[in-house]
Design a binder for these strands. Structure first.
Length: 589
RNA sequence: GCCGACGUAGCUCAGUUGGCAGAGCAGCCGCCUCGUAAGUGGCAGGUCGCGAGUUCGAAUCUCGCCGUCGGCUCCA
């Protein structure tokens, strides 16, 4: 997301949106005298502007603001750049009572710097590098979208300002297209499809952020999990099962309680015994305990402990979002214990596995974020040398795979840097799916050791990795990626058998039985409905194949196959069963 | 948690200025036996999210909770 530190850009769309933000601010100041304006950058698809308003406003106030903006646009007010010495700029914004602009000037401008301001006619003046369109008449198509609160400088300890989001386009047609695309994206929304396809449900009686996986959704998940575990075992991972709770002390020792107790479930305290148990927010401490069940030799390393582990995090209510952000989730987790020499190779192996999972599942639009520390010292533990060794291993592994990445300063885990696989949902919001993290700190905290060749004790390094991420978030992604039309191997129902009339039910049952023998998930639609209705319903459920049978098929031992794209073929039942089974076995997309 | 919006039948939504709660789809019971996206008739279904308050009277107004959505913050 764009910030005030954002480099100015002369890209035309960027300029247009930035200029529209100025017009928005001008309109708001006209309608709400006494408004202080903070920052108003262009962003992907639009712009926003943050205000401190003299009185609270609601969404019904947006319409009048749009009208005022249209008025300003009709006046064709020129955008004029005025350069001022810093002292004079400070004087100007002081007179205007624009304290946020003063704060920016004082924090970011050097004493001798010439300050750029932009005037919109005589209505509005902003601290701004520009560039801008020539005059407000160059703005042809915009719309205010919504209202939101946003903390000044993105810090929740600061005052919350009122943010107005808008969108702007060169032409009316492009604006309409954008709005149309938004509506289309909403149809792919996993929350909507989750309900329509009966994949999962939320019920306030279980509590916020606690999904119920319905039979169809649980089927997709089971297929993914079976395959994941199988692949990992194949690659030398050792799958374990560890409990969802542990003594609170375990998380105190790991440092998690200290840092994250606000978003951990409250400890369960038992009066009689004095025991204090805690729902686990992640799996690493348990896997460390697995490591410590034996004295480990260098010959055991790398030791890859894996589990699809349930994690419990009490996310703030406003942070919950469908399946993307829940309070209970299952992570495709593993912790690799290795020597420093093995580190880069293990990172590389983890990346390759995550890439492979992504490819087979169809997570095909992602990029790598190398998440590193920033200079907020208190957030990170461990020494400089370890952090740079960790970062070198991560960057080295990416380089060895010829992958480019973007840096994410301040996005590291508290114990070390990581590579995050970043994806976008249907509404273009960014999420982390897979992750590979290097950790020198937990081995230290838990005093992990292995016996080296020379008989001495050494400290292993840990790689934390979620190759497919959390089942919930992955599912949300896949639902949106496929708009609910899963590849056949994942589809909850793979074939619906549809008899043309009740007279064909016995043969339809035979067809279903034959398909089931090949472990194909098949439904026989024996409802009292017409064939057309049954086709319509199978289509709505996005079932990959319909096997439609009547007299002709019964006589020939065939099925009439209609796929969900609408293509039709007639083929022997045996051929159909085999080709679907093959498609499933190959996990074809 | 904070800002804004929202919560009416299983789902999607109507419900005038406060005056007897509606439709379509889904469900159930019939009839129809049909060749590639909705055959047809009937029946049933609602503490209007929950709890207070205002009022002769509240789905509608006020307040507090719960939940959902969009942002902000957070994301081990």
């Amino acid at each position: 997301m764009a910030e005030y530190a954002e480099e100015p850009s002369s890209e035309p769309l960027y300029v247009l949106r930035h200029s529209t933000a100025h017009v928005l601010a001008a309109a708001v100041c006209q309608l709400h005298p006494g408004t202080k304006y903070a920052i108003g950058p262009p962003i992907e698809n639009g712009f926003y502007y943050d205000f401190e308003l003299p009185e609270p406003i609601g969404e019904s106030d947006l319409r009048p603001i749009e009208k005022k903006m249209a008025e300003i646009i009709r006046k064709r007010l020129p955008f004029v750049q005025v350069k001022l010495p810093r002292a004079q700029a400070i004087e100007l914004f002081k007179e205007l009572g624009q304290t946020y602009k003063l704060e920016i000037l004082e924090a970011e401008a050097k004493d001798d710097e010439v300050i750029s301001t932009y005037q919109t006619g005589d209505l509005f003046v902003d601290l701004c590098r520009g560039p801008h369109v020539r005059d407000s008449g160059d703005i042809h198509a915009f719309k205010l979208m919504r209202l939101a609160g946003a903390y000044w400088r993105g810090d929740e300890h600061n005052k919350m300002l009122t943010r107005i989001y808008g969108t702007a386009w060169p032409t009316r047609e492009e604006l309409d297209q954008y709005l149309h695309d938004l509506a289309e994206a909403e149809k792919r929304d996993h929350k909507r499809l989750g309900r329509e396809l009966k994949l999962f449900a939320f019920d306030e009686r279980t509590g916020a952020g606690l999904p119920l996986w319905l039979p169809a959704g649980a089927t997709v998940r089971r297929e993914i999990e079976r395959w994941i575990v199988d692949e990992e075992v194949q690659r030398g991972y050792q799958h374990v099962r560890t409990p969802d709770v542990a003594r609170l002390d375990l998380y105190k020792k790991s440092g998690h309680w200290d840092r994250y107790h606000d978003s951990m479930y409250p400890p369960m305290r038992f009066e009689e015994s004095g025991e204090v148990l805690e729902l686990r927010p992640m799996n690493c401490p348990h896997h460390i305990l697995v490591y410590q069940t034996e004295l480990r030799s260098y010959r055991d390393l790398p030791l890859r402990i894996a589990e699809i582990g349930n994690n419990w995090r009490f996310e703030k209510s406003g942070e919950l979002s469908g399946m993307n952000r829940v309070r209970a989730f299952a992570l495709n987790d593993a912790h690799i214990f290795c020597t420093p020499e093995q580190l880069e190779q293990e990172v590389r192996g983890s990346l390759e596995l995550a890439m492979y999972f992504s490819e087979v599942l169809g997570v095909d639009e992602y990029w790598y974020r190398l998440s590193v520390r920033d200079d907020t010292k208190a957030k990170w533990i461990g020494g400089e040398a370890e952090w740079s060794a960790a970062q070198a291993a991560l960057a080295g592994a990416l380089a060895s795979l010829d992958q480019v990445y973007r840096l994410g300063p301040g996005e590291a885990a508290f114990y070390g840097p990581k590579i995050d696989f970043q994806v976008r949902d249907a509404m273009h919001r960014e999420f982390t799916n897979s992750t590979v993290q290097v950790d020198f700190q937990l081995p230290e905290l838990f005093d992990l050791e292995y016996v080296a060749e020379d008989g001495g004790r050494r400290r292993p390094v840990m790689v934390h990795r979620g190759a497919a991420g959390a089942m919930e978030r992955l599912f949300a992604y896949l639902i949106e990626r496929y708009a609910g039309a899963f590849p056949t191997w994942l589809a909850p129902t793979q074939v619906v058998v549809i008899p043309i009339t009740d007279a064909h039910l016995p043969f339809a049952a035979e067809v279903a039985a034959r398909l089931k023998r090949s472990r194909i998930r098949v439904d026989l639609d024996d409802s009292q409905e017409r064939m057309n209705k049954k086709i319509r319903e199978a289509q709505a459920r996005k079932v990959p194949y319909m096997a439609i049978v009547g007299d002709r098929e019964r006589e020939a031992g065939e099925v009439s196959v209609r796929d969900r794209a609408g293509a039709q073929t007639a083929e022997p039942l045996e051929d159909f069963a085999q080709r679907v089974a093959l498609e499933i076995a190959e996990r074809r997309r």
